[in-house]
Amino acid sequence: MNGSPLTMSHVVFIILSAIALVGALGVVLNRNLFRAALFLVLSFVAVAGFYILLEAEFLAMVQILVYVGAISILIIFAIMLSRRMMSPEIKAFNEQWAWALVAALALFAILAFVLLGVVWPTAEASVPENTISDLGQALVSPDQFVLVFEVASVLLLVALVGAVIVARER
């Protein structure tokens, strides 16, 4: 932190990082699938905390809405419908753990190398007061993101129709 004194936001950042890391470790190490999914939720909530720390409230709310409210519930549902739901004690490791460790360490090394090597640009201006209306305008204005936005909606619609067709009784 370039020798600057420890401010409140540093303390909050450290606490949130600890929560996120404990959650992530819980996901991989816990032998109970349901509990592992709950640790994943903890990790997601901590990431939402990072967004609030960065004054991106909208992103934080969407993070909770999409990841905690939708994706983790989808995961929990898949776990509940799986075969071993009622006998939750399963192995946390299988015979491929050594290769997985090597791959994970390699990924960590690459990420650490990149993160330490790049000089990150920092914005001079502070975060504007009300970013939501700007964001909304940007999503629907023709010279910005309207095409991307519409393509994403069409993609979701296609997925929805596909799901209906797959699940339909004949």
Partner: peptide
């Protein structure tokens, strides 16, 4: 409020 509502489900 909507986001908090999704935690209720959990």
């Amino acid at each position: 409020i909507v986001a908090i509502g999704s935690i209720h489900v959990l």
